[in-house]
């Protein structure tokens, strides 16, 4: 699935990373707990989160993720956006809740990881 399709499915706003929006991603995970993302996530390219602080972008960076979707209408601040731009990470924002966002993406073909 292209990141642009994720944007469309979630009726999301593009916050930064327009040049990467046609890149393909195959897996995603959803969590507000960065500890768990670092511990359990494997090759997922998209992180859905309702948590808003710079460590969300840092976590995605360490995990080589390509895109972060902020759910529940959460908005990253300027510092977070700057960090994402520097790291070539696409930021999207949707008003949908976590469960609905994950469900819609899964239904449309984006997969989760292999688990623990």
């Amino acid at each position: 699935m292209k990141i642009s399709e994720i944007k469309s499915i979630l009726n999301a706003e593009l916050i930064c990373g327009e040049e990467f929006i046609e890149n393909e991603v195959h897996t995603a995970c959803g969590s507000d707990m960065m500890s768990d993302v670092l511990a359990y996530v494997k090759e997922q390219a998209v992180l859905l989160s309702g948590l808003v602080n710079p460590q969300v972008v840092r976590t995605a960076e360490m995990m080589d993720m390509k895109c972060i979707v902020f759910v529940r209408g959460k908005q990253p601040d300027e510092d977070m956006i700057e960090l994402a731009v520097e790291r070539d990470i696409v930021l999207l924002g949707t008003k949908l809740e976590m469960f609905t966002s994950c469900g819609l993406l899964y239904k449309n073909g984006l997969k989760g990881g292999s688990g623990i």
């Binding site: 707990m33 960065m34 500890s35 670092l38 511990a39 948590l51 602080n53 976590t59």
Partner: peptide, 15 residues
């Protein structure tokens, strides 16, 4: 509240 402190840090470093 910042997304850390799940008690996974040290075990994860080992992993």
């Amino acid at each position: 509240q910042l997304g850390f402190g799940a008690g996974m840090g040290l075990p994860n470093i080992k992993k």
